[in-house]
């Protein structure tokens, strides 16, 4: 009996120790990510700033995500309109479909889905690229040659995605609206003029802003997490693989959490 109690106590201590260690590790990692963010801001406003690399990254990260953005935007528009249309038709509310679809796309769906897909495509790419550079000592070489990996690798990627993700989300929104129009015309006999007038009268400036701000913040989150993980990658190719998976999962979670808070802030300000 006493042995069992002693064994339970030991197990509890081991679990407690394990949880404390894990909590401290997560806390430390978040501190390091925050420190990286501070370094990015500091490096942005001091020389040298690699403008050419920024343009190169906007082209590489932004343009490379164009096709996936168009596909996701169109699919969202088509599917949402179809579901809302048949759902609202039961209550005679088909005419509200353009308003509901455009508002959902502008505020939530376009920035959120585009960002999640970009997190998968670009976030993992950043982690893999910087991680591979790290394990092959290229990051050390950047430092040894008197330059900063944060300035050379992180800052251009950070601002490139902060700039290009809102543009991609806008594109996704625009394509989604077209998708909605196709379904509205063919399935619910809504005219193009009525559809567009409802879209423009429903979606206000702050709705567009909400989507754009969210996308910019999500872009920052994706690169921050991708670059951080790339810079701490160890254990060769195995480590690189683990890093890419970790970045996709972690940045997706952070995007979803942040989405709630930004939505809340915008609703508080404009409602």
């Amino acid at each position: 009996m006493n042995n069992e109690i002693g064994s339970d106590k030991n197990s509890a201590e081991i679990i407690h120790h394990h949880l404390t260690k894990r909590f401290l590790k997560v806390l430390m990692m978040n501190g390091e990510i925050f420190q990286l963010f501070i370094d990015i801001i500091r490096s942005t406003f001091s020389r040298p700033f690699y403008f050419n690399r920024l343009v190169e990254q906007i082209y590489h990260l932004g343009r490379g995500s164009l096709s996936i953005t168009i596909v996701i935007g169109l699919t969202m528009g088509l599917v949402m309109t179809l579901n809302f249309g048949y759902g609202l038709a039961k209550f005679g509310g088909t005419l509200y479909v353009p308003a509901v679809v455009s508002l959902s796309l502008a505020r939530e769906m376009a920035p959120l889905f585009t960002s999640l897909l970009v997190a998968g495509r670009v976030g993992s790419g950043i982690a893999a690229e910087i991680g591979a550079m790290n394990v092959t000592q290229q990051v050390d070489a950047i430092r040894a040659l008197g330059t900063s990996p944060i300035r050379v690798l992180v800052v251009p990627r950070f601002w490139a995605l902060v700039i290009s993700l809102p543009l991609l989300s806008s594109l996704s929104f625009a394509v989604g609206i077209i998708g909605g129009l196709i379904v509205c015309k063919n399935e619910f006999d809504i005219t193009t003029g009525f559809y567009l007038s409802k879209v423009f009268s429903t979606v206000k400036f702050h709705d567009y802003m909400s989507g754009l701000v969210k996308s910019a913040v999500f872009g920052g989150i994706i690169t921050l997490i991708g670059c951080y993980r790339g810079l701490v990658t160890r254990d060769g190719t195995k480590g690189v693989g683990q890093s890419t998976t970790w970045v996709v999962v972690t940045s997706s979670i952070w995007i979803l959490i942040t989405d709630f808070f930004i939505s809340k802030i915008f609703l508080m300000i404009w409602n």
């Binding site: 550079m133 092959t136 000592q137 290229q138 050390d140 070489a141 040894a144």
Partner: peptide, 8 residues
């Protein structure tokens, strides 16, 4: 560097 550590 031992490996050269060239930017690939």
């Amino acid at each position: 560097f031992q490996s050269g550590a060239l930017f690939d």
